[in-house]
């Protein structure tokens, strides 16, 4: 009981290139014996090298191996994730303003073209002329009274969907965009865990 520790790996940690990752960096540890858990936190687990590119996966089995090497009598109780994603942060390239402007106009023109194609595709002009006739009983070649509010409504609807009208949050719930970003990150992490982790794949010709 004296030597029991509880170990929980963090899901994702960030380190600098050439850092030495210690167990305390990637895991939360509590134990009844303070000195043992402090010592364990200081144990090195991985040395980042230049070959590592930008993601390293550390499996819980390696953490247990290191701890057992230090003191075989420690009883390790593991909780939570069975691996940690170590993200190596290189100096971030600062994006240029010109690049942002280019992307901005790319999206702007693309978005304008898609809505025009959509309108042509569903004969929106005829539908609007029809609605004008329906309400007023008169034929109008260009029912702009309907179409200008419609155009502004388009933008308003998109903003409403992504919830940027109410800048201050009305509630804690995330917007669909945030959920989508989260899901995408989750999928990427899952892929990395399965494919970058040498412990989780075993091929037929591996030793």
């Amino acid at each position: 009981m004296e030597k029991t520790i509880y170990l929980r790996l963090r899901h994702r940690v960030q380190v600098h290139p050439n850092d030495t990752v210690s167990i305390g960096d990637i895991a939360q540890i509590i134990g009844f014996n303070e000195t043992i858990s402090t010592k364990i936190k200081e144990l090195p687990i991985y040395q980042i090298t230049i070959q590592d590119k930008n993601i390293v996966v550390i499996d819980i089995i390696n953490v247990i191996k290191e701890i057992k090497k230090y003191d075989p009598a420690v009883d390790i109780q593991t909780i939570g994730p069975t691996q940690t994603l170590v993200e190596i942060i290189f100096k971030r390239k600062k994006f240029t303003l010109g690049f942002l402007v280019l992307i901005w106009f790319l999206l702007f023109v693309g978005s304008a073209l898609t809505i025009m194609n959509f309108h042509e595709d569903v004969s929106m002009q005829e539908v609007h002329q029809r609605i004008y006739k329906l309400i007023t009983g008169k034929y109008e070649e260009k029912p702009l009274l309907l179409q200008i509010p419609y155009s502004f409504g388009l933008g308003l609807g998109m903003i409403l969907f992504f919830n940027h009208v109410f800048k201050k949050r009305i509630n804690e719930e995330p917007s669909p965009l945030e959920v989508e970003m989260f899901n995408y990150q989750q999928d990427l992490d899952h892929y990395l865990i399965m494919n970058e982790n040498k412990e989780s794949l075993k091929k037929i010709d591996d030793n």
Binding site: L107, V109, S111, H119, L154, I159, F162
Partner: peptide, 13 residues
């Protein structure tokens, strides 16, 4: 970038 898309839709329309 979201605003680019929104304004593009309004102006295009």
């Amino acid at each position: 970038l979201l605003m680019a898309l929104v304004l593009g839709k309004i102006v295009g329309s």
